[in-house]
Each structure stands twice: as structure tokens, then as C-alpha cells.
């Protein structure tokens, strides 16, 4: 190995070490990641009447938002974040949340819920494991 190559190797190792140290997730970083909120579109009611006897679903604005967000999230899971992972279990019909680190997971999950707007979804739809 030439001297030049040794220097390059050394510099590369140094850069890697600096990179790892610099980008290693820190506790306070949880608060730095900001997720954009999910926009709930306006409702479009498509009730065409019925020849066989089905009436329109009557949802309040709040219910509609919740329904939309649940479906939206169900379509996006599984989501793997730094300290938690979320998926949907059709068997129990709930979102399953797994914390990789309990304290940090709770903090990140709660923040993520607020940032994304998924905090509108009632807690009973989330099963924490």
C-alpha cells in the first residue's frame, strides 16, 4: 500500500466515523422530525337512492375525518420509524404499535400522531405492544 493510499484509507475511515457520530440519532432529534399533516378532502356524498333498500350512511364531519384518516393510515402501514413500528391487524381490526424503545417510542409516536393529524383517530383503534 502506497503512502498515498494509506492516507486515502485513513481519511475514508475518518469520514465514516465522523458521519456515524454526526448522524447517530439523538434523543432530542425526535422533536426535529416534522411530519406533514394528512389533509382530509371534502366529503363527496354519492347516495344514488336505492331500488333494494339501502339508505345513506350518515356520518358527522368528525366521524368522516376519523374514517378517512383510518383508511388513509391503513393504506400506508407498515410504517417503521426510529423508535416505533405500526401495522394493521385485520384479525383484531386495529392498528398495532410496537415500541423499539418504550420511553422514546411513546414520545416519538405521540409526536408523530399530532404532526400527521392521526391523533383524530380514537385511541381504541391502536393496540400497543
Amino acid at each position: 500500500m502506497t503512502k498515498k493510499n494509506k492516507i486515502i484509507l485513513g481519511l475514508t475511515i475518518l469520514v465514516v466515523i465522523v458521519g456515524v457520530v454526526a448522524f447517530w440519532p439523538k434523543e432530542e432529534e425526535i422533536n426535529k422530525i416534522v411530519d406533514s399533516p394528512v389533509v382530509v378532502p371534502d366529503r363527496i356524498i354519492t347516495d344514488y337512492g336505492s331500488d333494494t333498500g339501502a339508505k345513506e350512511i350518515s356520518l358527522s364531519e368528525e366521524q368522516y375525518s376519523e374514517v378517512y384518516l383510518i383508511k388513509d393510515l391503513r393504506d400506508k402501514v407498515p410504517i417503521n420509524r426510529t423508535y416505533f413500528l405500526i401495522d394493521f391487524d385485520y384479525g383484531v381490526n386495529k392498528f398495532i404499535v410496537k415500541y423499539k424503545d418504550t420511553n422514546k417510542g411513546v414520545a416519538e409516536f405521540e409526536k408523530w400522531l399530532v404532526d400527521t393529524g392521526y391523533n383524530v383517530i380514537s385511541k381504541e383503534y391502536f393496540q400497543i405492544k
Partner: peptide, 9 residues
């Protein structure tokens, strides 16, 4: 399942 989640199917 009484929850409204079922309506966003």
C-alpha cells in the same frame, strides 16, 4: 365491529 373504521373500507 361497531367502530367507524369499518366504513372506510
Amino acid at each position: 365491529s361497531l367502530d367507524s373504521v369499518t366504513q372506510g373500507c
